[in-house]
Design a protein around this nucleic acid. Sequence first.
DNA 1: TTGAAAGCGCTAACAG
DNA 2: CTGTTAGCGCTTTCAA
Lengths: 342, 342
Amino acid sequence: MNHNAPNKVTIIDVAREAGVSYATVSRVLNDEPYVKPETRERVTATLQRMGYVANRQARSLRTGRSQMIGLLVRDLGTGYIGQIISGVDAEIAETDFEMLLFTTHHQAREPEYVATFVGGMADGLLLILPHNVDPYTGLLNQRRYPHVFVDYKGSDKGPAVGADNYGGAIMAIDYLVSLGHRRIGFITGALDLTSGVDRLTGYRQAAANHGLDDDPALVAEGDYHQPSGHAAAQALLSLPHRPTAIFAANDAMAFGAMEAIREAGLRIPDDMSVMGFDDTPQAAGVSPALTTIRQPLEEMGRQAVQMLLTYIEDPERPFEYRELATDLVVRDSCAPLRNAAK
Amino acid sequence: MNHNAPNKVTIIDVAREAGVSYATVSRVLNDEPYVKPETRERVTATLQRMGYVANRQARSLRTGRSQMIGLLVRDLGTGYIGQIISGVDAEIAETDFEMLLFTTHHQAREPEYVATFVGGMADGLLLILPHNVDPYTGLLNQRRYPHVFVDYKGSDKGPAVGADNYGGAIMAIDYLVSLGHRRIGFITGALDLTSGVDRLTGYRQAAANHGLDDDPALVAEGDYHQPSGHAAAQALLSLPHRPTAIFAANDAMAFGAMEAIREAGLRIPDDMSVMGFDDTPQAAGVSPALTTIRQPLEEMGRQAVQMLLTYIEDPERPFEYRELATDLVVRDSCAPLRNAAK
DNA sequence: TTGAAAGCGCTAACAG
DNA sequence: CTGTTAGCGCTTTCAA
């Protein structure tokens, strides 16, 4: 075990070296007025020469502010999260805060992480793991700790920003119907997420609006991961009366579905139309390019930061929920229903 | 501006409430011996009841250890980085450290971030931005601050872990040659990265080994991003005597190349073979599935953590460089050269 | 087995 | 303009 104080240079070392009190060094560090120009210069030079670097922990301990925004994420694997983070990152870059990201695969440990942040590591927290937020709300709200749930359907649980998942699903079905499809399979997302539920609800509502087949077998459960899309599509394809189009609750599952469709010897979009949801970067890259519902992920990240900043300024501000619109992005994976459909 | 101390619960509050000195509370917190069982129990209960959460900054200020490992990354957009992080994350999860990730698009600010870490935020640092490491080495080495460069070809600059990029490129060309290709285009990576240079060197060496065409026009410069792969492939395709196979220095550019090849009305692999490098998750997902050189990215992350840990224990340990092997992953994007090639 | 007290490095009054 | 002096919340001797 190695002990403290390696070769650190503290404000005191610098003060001694420059022949001033360390309060003066602190003043120079913080650009405060009332320091004689010559003194400032001398101190600055010493700072430079000695390679001084501030200890943020000490500073934060003293001021009660860390100038950091925490970001709690379950997994970085998905492009989906990456996009949100890009937005968050970009927005934070415009402030004088830093982003501090914690990953955790272990659901069990999440509350622990939250505590770390609340304990002073960061001045506010963005949470992108909206399974069940209950484990967090307690500590967070009790302390009035500034936080925002991202991609979560707000309620009384806490401030949140999300997308119009319900409306997006409606849009998707409307589009497929406009192409003549009436038998549309749906692959659900994880149903313990509000987004998963909302997209399913949207699908059902739209189906009802158009008086489509109300066959329960047309709904196959997925979990937002690609393999589940593959499996669900296989189930859909093996139906006695198979659908002519498949709408997956996210792009990853749509990719899985496309794979399954190809394996079944069908062509996309000629024999089977496919739609996704999210508009991840890959959606435009696959072939045929995926028609999907765009979720403004980056924008969501940006808005989340903006909201968080307001809570950092005023922790007492009442909970706010912002919902961002989703759009239809037409590419090449859907085609009009051919009369001669098998 | 809001001031300090919101509704924090400190060790002192707990001590008062439990009727002990705060030293005792600290002892309970740290599982130290010599606390009467009843006292311990009472304190634990109070801790629980009051919702105490430790202030890591204070603790770290006092102990000189933060139990955090910093990770400095330029961008999260690429799946490539995501994979390394997964490995890092998984490995860290097995220790009693936490991962703390800083992203920075702004090259100019990177040294600043490093200073933050060195200043006490973390006990060690992993750097995944191996453009030019010189700006960092100074501070890092002067302080003997534990750090490891990831995906960087080690030298005297500092400890590092990388992959056998040179060998991988050789393997790729050997494979293409075994399929009968003799005119092989190469799309380089960013040449300010050691990996970019090494892959190019490997390509040249292998080409020389096999006595392939030594046409400089067969080498098109890219920057590891998809669009550059697209552009470079276009250049290669418009050559008077076009190659029969294209080897891109990473998967992302290979995807761009595939796009360009399709746009040119050619089929993959029938009319043109394509190889990538990295084996990102998407490589298996595109169609045709991409034949590529696998880089053990996750493993790289894991090893980097292991190495870092040794430096945290003994900052004086001499620089070490670990190189991981790369493998050929055969999928569907390469085909034997047909005699009747156009 | 417990309490008192001394700082970790820094900022922010308060005096000069 | 500059120095002195309290702590921020915590761990860790040193005594008791």
